[in-house]
Each structure stands twice: as C-alpha cells, then as structure tokens.
Design a protein around this nucleic acid. Structure first.
Length: 507
RNA sequence: GAAUCGGUAGCUCAGUCGGUAGAGCAACGGCCUUUUAAGCCGUGGGUCGAGGGUUCGAGUCCCUCCCGAUUCACCA
C-alpha cells in the first residue's frame, strides 16, 4: 500500500527520528509561512545593490529554498540554498543564529534537501563569491527522503558533474525530484511555457479568439488515428477522447467568428516512442477569408517570433545543426521535392506506375496502399529527413487530405502545406474544404475505407456536414504540434523531456 | 508489436574464469569561525529488478516474467 509500509532505508529512518527530535525541541518542522523578500538570481545579478562596506547598514534579505550542499567548519558553515531562480551560498555562524539553532538544528537535524529560510546581509567571501551572511535561520520543511545531490566542479572552464540524477526512468517517474536537482529541466519547461505564451500573444494581437471545444466527443474526427474510448454512464453511451478539434473549430467559423484557436490536448491510442506520447498538445487555428498562402506567412512569422523570444535569435542549435527560423521559409511543392531527391516526377502518375517506381526505390507497397499513401511513403523515405532548415512542403495528393480544399489549379492535389524542420513535421495546414458536397463525398470515401478495415480512416460526421451546408467562408486552418516544436526549440531528443509527466507503465 | 542494451547501497558506478558484496559522493560519530566536489580521523549501510533452474556454491550461467532506454514499424 503506502510507501512507509515497505521497508525504508536507513537514511529515511534517521530523518524520521530527526523529525521527532525537532518536535521535542519545540521546533515545528512544518511551519506555516516565511516572508521571502528576495530570490537568489536577483541578488547574484546585482550584488552591489546589496553589499556595503559597513554590514550593519546593509539591506536585509530573506531567502528560502532547499539546502543543496553543506560545508561545515565547526562553529561556522557554508551551504548552498536553491530557490526557484537558482542557488546562492549562505554563510552561517553559531554566534549569529544561536547555539541550539546552529549546533543542534542546523548541524544535527537539517539534511540536504530540507527547505529553510534565512535572513541576513549580502557580502563577498575571500574568494569573491556573493554570499548571504545569515543572521536568522529557520527550518521550513523537514524532508523525509534524501535527495540525489549532484556535485559540480569546473576544471579549465569545463563543467564536470558528479553523481547527477541521470536515470531517465526515475527522472520521468519522479519529475519533482528531477526538477529539484537538474536545473536545466526547469529551464526547458520555462521555455515551453514561454513558447505557448508567445504564440497566444501573437494570435491575440491579430484578434483571434481563444476557445475551448469538447474533449469527449461522440464522433471523433479531424485526423487519422485510433482513439481512446470511454463511456458515459448516465447516457449509457460511448464517447471518444478527441484526436483533434478541427471539426469543432470549423463549426465556430461557420458560426461567424473570423479567427479561432485552441491549445488542445489530444489523445491517440497508438504506439509510444520518443516522438509520441498518448496525450499531446496541438494548437489549431482557423482564420476566415484566408487561404494556405496567407497561413504560410502567418506560420513562419509566428515561429520566428518564438525562436527570438526563446533564444534572442532566429538561430537555434538542435543537435548537430544550427537551424535558422528567419523568414521567409522556402516553399517547395511536394512533387518537386520528391523529384529533386529521387529523379522521379510522380505528378499525374497512375497507381501502377507509382508501384513500379516505388519498387525501384525499394519502398514496400501492398495492395491496400493507394496513390496518396505510396507518394507519402516515398516522401517520408527519401525527402523528409533531409529537410533540416525550415521549409514549407506544399500541394499534397487529395487522397491523403480529406478535409483540405482542392487545389485551385493543380488537378488531383489539395492546397495543403506542412512545415518541416530538423527532418520532422512541425505543422500541417490547408485551405479548408468548405464545399459541403465535396466534403460529404470525401468523408464517405473515408467511411468506405473504414468498412474495409482501416480503423484510422475518418467517420462521417453528419452534424459537421450540416454546419458546412449553412456555409463556411473561405478559411485557412493550421495545426502545430507544441511538443515537437518545443523539442526543437529546447534541443530535446525525446518528447518525454518536454512533458512534465510523460506516460509510463505503472510501477 | 519486434530487435538490441540495461536494472548492484540514497545517487553515480565497478564487480575478472561461478568461490565471503566494492568505490566515490550522501549518511552516522568526532575535529575545524570566509569554505568551493571544503579537508582530516573513524563507522554503519545491500531481497544484486522478480521468480524458477543448473551447481557443493550464482550478482555472474540457463529459462520465464517485470520495468526502462534506443532503433524499427504506425502516427503528430
């Protein structure tokens, strides 16, 4: 059952004993508040605002956080205190904070990881480190588990880390510990939040409306994927966790909004990998009276803005590559991109011709694969991973895109683009199909694929078709994978590194 | 779902040919009032992922299972 019924380690046992000793001394190990006046980062950024020759007139600072390392030298000690902003060194002496408080509480009963509050003045040590000289010390939380402290040393400017808390499984399962001991993890998630904020501000500035749409849907749609299924007891009906919110947002465009967007947690019941989590986040945006050309300009502008906000530059280091998000990004029609890499122009080719070419290119094909699928396979195998710098691949085969509008001039294609960088799709967009009769035909085509066993094909959503019959203006739509964009913007190799709590099997 | 690699102290790891379970840090007992992985002396700490098998003897060899990472397949 609960943790403490299992055997606990010697160190945990000891901490429980210390807890009792604190209580016996009349020290509340879990007090109610502490008036924090400063954070480590602001003091270290502007130490001269705090340091004066005469310490008796120095400004007082009150800082709280975890004890991360300790160097005790008899009647005085240094420790590093970590707050939300970083760490700062504290100097504490018996003669300043009281004998019992120092000798017993601080030296004997406080452990690494405990949360403490200190008040004092700022000074520089003999070696020049900005340090708080504590005149007051209070325990704010007695921790019962030892934290895995890492130690760092700088040798010839190179940082070496000892005993880092590095086991990925433990880091993902106990993200709270990961966040305590691995400061760069906090930085990654701050960037993720910043990324979302920049996008939201950008869309708000253009007057688009942030909305919420159902997560529990009676018919799932808007993408090709298998859903999670759940059940509504009172109505005794099947409900699906959304795989996308596209069809609901388009209903809102029908309803008269000129631009709507939603940061949407979506759920897909498929395999997990370093690029896939069962639940993930997309932002979808729909803008009336615009087409996919407009949307390309919008997208590159917004992503460029994100890069600058996070890195102060349009250039972002991702693995081996420096990726430059500076606008404009090249636009390359899909068939041109394939021809450049394979020498084959696939446009207008029949299914049999495509199968022959696929065979030449050593792409596995089977009878269930149509024109769109084969082209997609060739693109994925020969082109996509080579696209490192941001690029828009445009004009996809109609078979792959049942919700996109037919191309205005190219037969058999739709007005669709994907933004690709670092060899991966980061967004998907099109001129939205608003011809209700065409849309019905395409969904019925999907439905017949479903009947033939393709459980990722879309269903016919009659209410959505009814909405289109009431009329949707020309509309451009966009979806951006927030997790994947965050991976690129934070140089993370796994989606788990940009999700606080990635899905894991039960312990 | 498949393949490969991994799981040993709180953390990071070593463990030879099958022969008493190891190190550093952390912890504990001492000394030390400006240290920088603080230092010095001393001490304790293990269901070796789980279960079974082979063997006089298994962390080590064999089998099954669990968990994770990576790659592949599907997808965003």
């Amino acid at each position: 059952m609960s943790e403490h019924e299992l055997s606990i380690s010697e160190q945990e046992e000891l901490r429980r004993e210390k807890l009792q000793q604190l209580r016996d001394l009349g020290v509340n190990p879990y007090p109610y508040e502490f008036d924090v006046t400063h954070h480590s980062a602001e003091i270290k950024a502007n130490p001269d605002n705090y340091i004066t020759e005469d310490h008796s007139v120095s400004p007082k600072v009150a800082v709280a956080g975890r004890v991360m390392t300790r160097r005790i030298m008899g009647k005085a000690a240094f420790f590093n205190l970590q707050d939300a902003e970083g760490t700062i060194q504290v100097y504490i002496r018996r003669d300043d904070v009281g004998e019992e408080n120092y000798n017993t509480v601080f030296k004997k009963l406080v452990d690494l990881g405990d949360i403490v509050g200190i008040k004092g003045f700022v000074f520089r040590t003999q070696t020049g480190e900005v340090t708080i000289h504590a005149e007051y010390f209070e325990l704010l939380n007695k921790t019962l588990k030892p934290i895995p402290v890492a130690k760092e040393i700088e040798e010839n400017g190179v940082k070496k880390v000892f005993d880092a808390f590095a086991d990925k499984e433990l880091r993902y399962r106990m993200r709270y510990v990961d966040l305590i001991v691995n400061p760069q993890v906090r930085e990654t998630f701050r960037k993720r939040t910043k990324l979302v904020q920049v996008m939201r501000e950008h869309m708000n500035e253009l007057g688009f409306l942030e909305v919420e749409t159902p997560i529990l849907q009676p018919i799932y749609g808007g993408a090709s994927a298998r859903p999670f299924v759940t059940h509504h007891n009172a109505l005794d009906m099947k409900l699906y966790m959304r795989i996308a919110n596209e069809l609901y947002l388009k209903r809102l465009i029908v309803g008269g909004f000129d631009g709507v967007y939603e940061f949407s947690k979506d759920f897909r019941n498929e395999g997990m990998s370093r690029f896939h989590n069962p639940e993930f986040t997309q932002v979808e945006l729909y803008v009336a009276y615009k087409d996919y050309n407009w949307m390309m300009e919008f997208t590159e502008k917004m992503v460029e803005k994100v890069a600058i906000a996070l890195h102060g530059s349009t250039k972002v280091q991702v693995g081996e590559h420096e990726i430059n998000f500076q606008t404009p990004w090249p636009r390359i029609p899909m068939f041109e991109a394939i021809e450049k890499e394979t020498g084959h122009n696939l446009y207008g080719k029949s299914l049999d011709e495509l199968k022959t070419i696929a065979h030449e290119l050593k792409i596995h094909v089977d009878d269930t694969m149509g024109i769109g699928k084969i082209i997609d396979e060739i693109f994925g195998e020969y082109v996509e991973h080579k696209l490192i710098q941001p690029v828009f691949i445009t004009d996809y085969p109609i078979e792959m895109s049942p919700l996109a509008k037919k191309h205005r001039s190219k037969e058999g294609l739709v007005e669709r683009f994907e933004g690709i960088c670092n060899g991966k799709e980061i967004c998907n967009a099109f001129s939205e199909l608003n011809d209700p009769i065409d849309q019905r035909e395409r969904l019925e085509e999907q439905a017949s694929l479903r009947d033939m066993g393709d459980d990722e094909a879309m269903a016919v959503d009659e209410d959505f078709l009814r909405a289109l019959e009431y009329g949707m203006p020309p509309t451009a739509g966009l979806g951006i994978g927030i997790d994947r964009l965050t991976m690129i913007m934070t140089n993370s190799e796994s989606i788990r590194d940009v999700l606080f709590f990635p899905h894991m099997r039960p312990e």
